Simulated scan of single mutants.
Amino acid sequence: MKGKEWYQADDIAREYDSKRFSRGGQLIDQREKAAVLDALGPVEDKNILEIACGTGRFTVMLAQQGADIIGLDISRAMMQQGREKARRAGVEDNIEFLRGDAARLPFPDDHFDAVFAMRFFHLADTPTKFLTEMARVSKNQVFFDTFNDQSLRVAYNWLLPMGSHLYSANDVHRLLDNAGLSLVEANHDFVLPFGFYRKIPNGIAQPFRSFDLAVGDSLVGDDVASVSYWNARVPSATDAETRAEEHASDAE
């Protein structure tokens, strides 16, 4: 089973977290959650939208931090797992799970303090449209990750059930420009791809992660990283006016 049908199957949803974030995958889960928290900063009382929330790993975490959050996904089965997590964590009143299309978000402009998506853009068939919609409904911030086209992920990318779109840095910069977003910060990680960590016990994964981090801190680290985290800002009206004045000045 491939593509959207695979992602929306009940048995896939039930096993999704255990297959990806147990064993060495725990290191992936920890790093991704840290990336989201670092990017969004204090989230208490913030109004946040998560695109492709899946089983609610980040949705529930941010609700526990005091955010009011909507998690949007195409899979009812995945969101049911998220609702159960929210109930167990006692934060169901802070979360709304909504089935919807990320290319046509059912929200007005500038509705959220921040909008983010994890594990989404490698599946996006129209990434410019999705990112533009995320920028439209955000007042301030858009955060997302990508898998990179010059990394070890290339070696097994074709095996993945839903396929995977890999990006270069130039690809992402074009997406940001087309969506009218300004890049604030980019972080790059995981020389060894996610699939490697998921296959080995956590105790064995730790030394490999230490090696991974050492390579990541070297001069070639950013170039060989398999994952990038992109933190972008929605320009304010003042920013737009400044750019217009600069363009007018250049034209004179």
Rank of each mutant, 00 (worst) to 15 (best):
Q80M: 05
T126Q: 11
A169E: 14
P201S: 10
H165Y: 07
V234Y: 08
Q65I: 00
L98N: 00
L49H: 04
H165S: 11
V142Y: 11
K85R: 14
D101N: 08
E84F: 08
Y16P: 00
S164R: 09
R31V: 07
D29I: 00
R20K: 11
N202W: 14
Q64E: 15
N170Q: 13
V172M: 04
K19Q: 15
M79Q: 07
G180Y: 04
D212P: 02
R23K: 15
R31C: 12
A232N: 08
C53S: 15
E185N: 13
S218D: 07
F130Y: 10
S236E: 01
Q64A: 11
P108N: 03
D101Q: 00
R209I: 09
S22L: 12
D149K: 13
G56F: 03
D171K: 09
V227D: 00
A155L: 14
F190S: 13
D68W: 11
P127E: 01
N178A: 12
F208Q: 00
A244E: 04
P42M: 09
V234N: 03
K46P: 05
T128W: 00
F208C: 01
A77Y: 10
I12G: 00
G71L: 03
T238H: 05
A240W: 05
R87P: 02
L160A: 11
L175H: 09
D171S: 09
K139H: 07
I28L: 15
V215D: 03
G66C: 08
P127F: 00
D68E: 11
L176E: 03
L175R: 04
Q81P: 01
L131G: 02
V215I: 14
V36D: 06
M118T: 06
Q64I: 02
G54Q: 03
K139L: 06
G203Q: 11
N170G: 14
E246I: 01
D145C: 09
D189E: 08
E84C: 02
L105M: 02
G25H: 01
E133A: 01
L72N: 03
A124R: 01
A67R: 11
N47H: 14
D149G: 06
A225Y: 08
L183G: 05
A63L: 13
R233D: 05
P193G: 03
D38H: 14
L131M: 01
V184K: 13
A103C: 04
F144D: 03
A232D: 08
G100W: 00
W6R: 11
S168W: 10
G221H: 07
R119I: 05
D239P: 01
V142H: 05
G54W: 07
F112D: 06
H122M: 02
F194E: 15
P106I: 05
W158R: 14
D177S: 13
T242K: 07
D189R: 09
F147R: 09
P207N: 08
R83W: 07
M134N: 01
S210V: 13
D10F: 01
D223K: 12
E133I: 06
D11H: 14
S228D: 06
C53I: 02
A9N: 10
A179P: 00
